[in-house]
Design a protein around this nucleic acid. Structure first.
Lengths: 350, 350
DNA sequence: ATGAAAGCGCTAACAA
DNA sequence: TTGTTAGCGCTTTCAT
């Protein structure tokens, strides 16, 4: 039936037979274990090469009862640069320890995410790192208790105690508000992603808090500058953000500054605001950095995604050491990077 | 030793015991196979849930002799948007067929790449899609003959006959040259990545060819406009590209137009050229599209990466159907997208 | 230094 | 409809 190729899988037994040694000896030779004569080792290696032998990972895993050397990463969007930079950070840290990274995407679907997590678990993944789209993470408790370390990144674990590595979103929000207030802005808009996302909430919280403080001070001093915040949540993706920006700019009293809740939103806002005369564009402050931000001149409040990845990977690695320590919550700093768009002053009220 | 958790793995046997059925019945119930009473199925499912059972994928794979439902993708750079968009395209197509995608990065190392490919193979991956960093792909022949479909994307297979899906780089190069010539440019620079990369070579080839044609015509007609091409290959990454751009612009007779060989190079060139007065910036034409290109106003010659991913995935899927067809070479079109930077005219020689 | 036997957790044939 | 018996390909004891 089969024209030319020898399709039958080559097994270790085949190699052993060809090298005229026992199964175990072949196994030892191939695994570079001690107690094999150099001579026999060579014989086995040759036989394996001639036969085109390739170890069956499933069998190895099963027989040894070990877990694989792969760590799974689940993100909601393979193409979001934030997550890909995160992935690079994770990979670098894992590589140092001889581990591999397998990246999968949930396409932001909670069901997909859980299905992927289960798949990783049943494939004996060594650990799972997840930027979760779930609102509640109790299901993950089962994986953890089964001995699979789970590290939550970017979005903290909800409903269970687990390791997580996140950015200081609230502080970031405060910094953003502070920055704009200092430049005279009193009508500020915040465009945030889905409002159940911890990042969106945190960033908004920081902004709100800082503006409230300002308003109170203004009220007390009576210097006339009570600030107002327009909030649009549930803005998902660039197109949505562009539409929302257009709407805001068409208001009677449009905001003089816009804060974009993440890199996708920043793109939409920038695209839309670019249609205005340069002099009439609102100040723009984005969350999360991106490669072109420098060229485009967009100021951002951002954390180091690659570093977040490293930290998360190390946490996972540490957990593999089977230490029964308490879960840790790591918060990484965000900082404001000035590039022009966020430094535009509020126009003087004519 | 173990404080609180019941660490022992729960096996199918445990579930069967608890449900008071045989191993096989439990297996059938869990796999939704026919010939199980609704009643017993429920019992088994409950038992599994109570015990926190999770199937051991390694054992399943081994026992069934099947391959897994995962397709592996190997790229050189997890964070390059070109590859991540490609990955999204692949994933979408695979999802329709119930397959999963596992993405891994070779960090552009040939050794890493081969190690990953082997790992995918021994993990029973259903197929492998690779944007290869290898100069020669004969090693992949072994995988293919072992029954694992391998599809080469972005860079064609070298040294073996295998499926590949690439862009029409040469045509793209021609289009780029044509576009610039039409706008009066006669001193053009091309910054390309490593010169062994088929994409770099092809793009350069197209440009060279078109310019040669032009020069011959000019020579014949004697209209004075023999064009010159400055080529810099081995330009890898934005920083390198920026440095190279600076160097070119400092020439006595700097190029009036720059063609950037890929998206990373485009970034570097744009960043550098931004330092000049707007009126003095060279025309810029990049290869490969990227999200911010529209906002930044950079003209590009690009193919549809997501579509490439889909096509590659479908090719892989088709191969899984065990058809012994001949390998196919698919070439996808690139088109030129005008956004401003590539339409600047060559300054009149004063 | 090498080998024989047992079994990892599961599914595939067969019975019953 | 359910259960029994063999393995899948490999690594482990425990000999030799």
């Amino acid at each position: 039936m089969n024209p030319s190729e020898s399709r039958a899988r080559v097994t270790l037994a085949d190699v052993a037979r060809r090298a005229e040694v026992s199964l175990k000896t072949a196994s030892r030779a191939l695994n570079a274990e001690p107690y094999v004569t150099e001579h026999t080792r060579q014989r086995v290696l040759e036989a394996a090469a001639e036969l085109g032998y390739e170890r069956n990972a499933a069998a190895t895993l099963l027989a040894s009862g070990q877990r694989s050397d792969t760590v799974g990463l689940i993100t909601g969007d393979l193409s979001n640069p934030f997550y890909t930079v995160l992935a690079v950070g994770i990979e670098g840290a894992l590589r140092e320890s001889g581990m591999r990274l397998s990246v999968a995407s949930s396409a932001e679907s909670p069901e997909q995410e859980w299905s992927l997590a289960s798949a990783f678990a049943s494939a004996q993944a060594r650990a799972i790192i997840v930027a979760s789209s779930l609102r509640d993470h109790t299901p993950y408790a089962a994986l953890i208790s089964r001995g699979i370390p789970v590290v939550f990144v970017d979005r903290p674990a909800v409903g269970i105690e687990a390791d997580s590595v996140v950015f200081g979103d609230v502080d970031g929000g405060r910094a953003a508000a502070e920055h704009l207030l200092a430049r005279g802005h009193r009508r500020i808009a915040f465009l945030g992603d889905y409002d159940w996302l911890p990042t969106s909430r945190g960033r908004l919280e920081g902004i709100t808090e800082r503006l409230r403080t300002d308003s109170e001070a203004a009220g007390g001093a009576g210097d006339g500058g009570a600030s107002s915040l327009v909030v649009r949540m549930g803005v998902h993706g660039p197109d949505d953000a562009a539409a929302c920006t257009a709407e805001l700019l068409a208001l009677d009293e449009p905001p003089t500054a816009i804060v974009a809740g993440n890199n996708r939103i920043t793109l939409g806002v920038a695209a839309q605001s670019r249609r205005l005369d340069p002099g009439r564009r609102p100040a723009l402050l984005g969350f999360d950095d991106f490669e072109w931000s420098d060229v485009v001149g967009i100021s951002v409040v951002a954390g180091d995604a690659a570093h977040m990845g490293e930290v998360a990977a190390r946490r996972a690695l540490a957990r593999m050491g089977d230490r029964e320590e308490r879960p840790t919550q790591t918060t990484l700093p965000m900082r404001l990077i000035e590039r022009g768009s966020g430094e535009r002053l509020a126009a003087d009220p004519a």
